[in-house]
């Protein structure tokens, strides 16, 4: 089963993940102003929440990670040397 971790220190409580998730996996805890996971069993690991989160506060474990053939390894290797 998919496990979703929210880094509470990083989450800014913008609610973008709550808005974007098609399966209502997240809710915004109004009291603390942070995202909470309420329905992880409906997560289909589309990772739209990762893309929209401005603070990279989310982590999904035990998911199928799609192949990333679009990554140019030559460019990545060149960047590694710089960064």
């Amino acid at each position: 089963m998919t496990t979703i971790k929210v880094d509470e220190d990083a989450c800014v409580g913008c609610g973008s993940c709550v808005e974007d998730c098609p399966n209502d996996v997240y809710e915004l805890d109004q009291e603390h102003g942070k995202t909470v996971v309420v329905n992880s069993e409906d997560c289909m690991a589309c990772l739209s929440c990762h893309e929209i989160c401005p603070s990279q506060a989310l982590e999904h474990d035990n998911i199928h990670v799609a192949k990333r053939l679009y990554i140019d390894r030559k460019v990545s290797n060149a960047l590694k040397k710089i960064i």
Partner: peptide
């Protein structure tokens, strides 16, 4: 239904 970077429904 939905498109994402890792999966589409």
């Amino acid at each position: 239904d939905h498109v994402g970077p890792n999966a589409c429904l």
